[in-house]
């Protein structure tokens, strides 16, 4: 068994794919160094991330397969599912042969897996565009802070949306599960490791608006149509923790 070990970044994965092609090898698995147990069963190759090689691969995917294929593999990668990286490799393998029709090969397992993962990640991203809640903090600088805990690693996917939309405020979107945050200073955003022991106290009017929002939320419910099952189906309870209106 041939195992490629990479550093867990998307660039690293693309580099691994470049290497497989260059070395004319067919790795059985592409995985991060932390999954040590797999080493017992085969030969391992350590991949050194190289952004030039990664860029070459991403360009080839865009041109030889399709731009959609590139976003599919990025989304699938961000699902952080165990096998996702290996599926990406097999998906591209077929992609080089099929071109943009690769997404139509629905008899092919890796295609189904990649499309399915991409759909899930896209879905959570879209949901979070609505469910992220900012609170204004009482700090020297005016900052809006939004903690959330998504299943998938989507902070880098939601940040551009808020950078366009809330362009005239400073904000932080904090993935509390991964200790990762997007920071925005009204000009540009960046992704960084981030931890807070305690959320700083809220700004002067913050609690008033939270109260008004809860108030609004409760007033628009039509009690004759009460249907909490449908509510939970649309807005799973795992996301309620950071929702102002649900606390």
């Amino acid at each position: 068994m041939l195992i490629y070990l990479y550093d867990g970044t998307f660039e690293g994965l693309l580099t691994a794919i470049y290497q497989a092609y260059y070395r004319r090898e067919k790795p059985d698995s592409i995985t991060t160094g932390s999954a040590m147990q797999t080493h017992l069963f085969g030969r391992t190759v350590q991949i050194t991330t190289d952004s030039k090689k990664a860029e070459k691969v991403s360009q080839a995917v865009r041109e030889k397969i399709s731009p959609a294929a590139l976003s599919n593999i990025l989304f699938a990668f961000l699902s952080e599912q165990n096998e996702a990286t290996t599926w990406v490799y097999h998906y591209l393998d077929l992609g080089w042969k099929m071109g943009k029709n690769v997404d139509l090969c629905l008899n092919h397992n890796p295609v189904l897996k990649i499309l399915d993962l991409a759909r899930k990640v896209k879905g959570e991203r879209h949901r979070m565009l609505g469910l992220i809640r900012f609170r204004r903090l009482n700090l020297k600088y005016d900052i809006y802070y939004a903690p959330y805990k998504p299943d998938y690693n989507i902070t880098g996917l939601v940040a551009p949306h808020f950078a366009r939309r809330l362009a005239d405020q400073n904000w932080i979107i904090h993935d509390t599960g991964r200790n990762l945050a997007a920071l925005f200073n009204q000009k540009e955003w960046l992704l960084t490791e981030f931890q807070l022991d305690k959320i700083p106290s809220p700004a002067a009017n913050e609690e008033t608006y939270q109260k008004l929002w809860k108030n609004y939320f409760n007033s628009v419910t039509i009690k004759e149509r009460y249907n909490p099952k449908l509510q939970k189906q649309n807005m799973p309870m795992k996301y309620w923790r950071y929702l102002i209106e649900k606390n």
Partner: peptide, 18 residues
């Protein structure tokens, strides 16, 4: 300015009538 729109629309919450 502040704000833009999203072609497909975005839901922000769901009331207990779903």
């Amino acid at each position: 300015g502040i704000g833009n729109s999203n072609l497909g629309g975005i839901c922000h919450s769901w009331t207990s009538d779903g």
